[in-house]
């Protein structure tokens, strides 16, 4: 079960960043090609409307950011000020870290609740009642996005959904930490693939070490 949630989270952010890139690529190519006075092609391109691309890109990235922030709790990527707590006695540090994690739970939990309320008031209430034929009273239909004309409450769902997930991740991490004292740690330096990527620079260095006493090294500027 947990594995499916993990995969879903990863799949969502992977898809969103990839798709957003392709959307903007297509929009730029389209705009540029439509400016070329090629008979036939230009006529066709001018009928294709790509005006929605920027808006879609923004929404995809906001969704990515919300779910990615939850994923980030799991991978330990969120940075904090560690000056003080790193020097505290172990037990104090543990309390402090737990306090920090609980604050994470608190903040994201509140935001999830507020976000849900906001989305509800922003048109979901109307949409749901309307769908099930309930009395609408003085409820008003929520706004829509300017270009895509999607109901904004659906777009804004990123806040309650993302924050709930983030809240859950904070609880998970806090629970693990309380039991085992282990925190997920993002190895910030480990940009994957670099181990093999940088071999050449290392080779160069080794070559330098090997030849630094050669008489040719004079040309190398090494004193």
């Amino acid at each position: 079960m947990m594995k499916y949630l993990d995969h879903l989270e990863e799949w969502i952010i992977t898809f969103l960043i990839g798709a957003a890139t392709l959307v903007i690529f297509a929009a730029v190519v389209h705009r540029y090609a439509s400016g070329l006075p090629i008979p036939g092609l230009q006529d066709w391109l001018l009928t294709v409307n790509m005006s929605w691309a920027q808006e879609l890109c923004i929404y995809m990235f906001v969704w990515m950011a919300k779910f990615g922030a939850a994923y980030g709790v799991r991978t330990g990527i969120h940075v904090g000020v560690d000056v003080l707590i790193n020097r505290l006695p172990e037990k104090w540090r543990k309390t402090s870290v737990l306090l920090g994690l609980s604050s994470g739970v608190l903040f994201t939990g509140i935001i999830a609740t507020l976000g849900a309320g906001f989305v509800w008031e922003n048109g979901m209430h109307y949409a749901v009642f309307n769908k099930f034929g309930m009395a609408l009273g003085d409820l008003y239909e929520g706004p829509i996005t300017p270009d895509l004309e999607w109901p904004t409450w659906i777009v804004y769902l990123a806040i309650p959904l993302g924050s709930s997930l983030m809240c859950f991740r904070f609880m998970q991490v806090a629970w693990t930490f309380a039991r085992t004292g282990e925190l997920p740690h993002h190895d910030h330096s480990h940009v994957d693939g670099l181990d093999d990527t940088i071999v050449d620079a290392t080779d160069a260095l080794e070559e330098y070490e090997a030849h630094k006493f050669d008489k040719n090294a004079e040309q190398g500027g090494v004193k």
Binding site: E10, I13, T14, L16, I17, G18, F61, V62, M64, A65, K66, F67, G68, A69, Y71, G72, T75, I77, H78, V79, V191, D192, G193, T197
Partner: peptide, 27 residues
């Protein structure tokens, strides 16, 4: 050709992870 098609999802995911952290602070 230093990267295979199979490696793409991981690059995307790692980039999304890093971007999200930054976007979350900016927000």
């Amino acid at each position: 050709k230093d990267m295979s098609i199979k490696g793409i999802p991981k690059v995307l995911r790692d980039s999304a992870n890093m971007s999200s952290m930054l976007l979350y602070i900016i927000t």
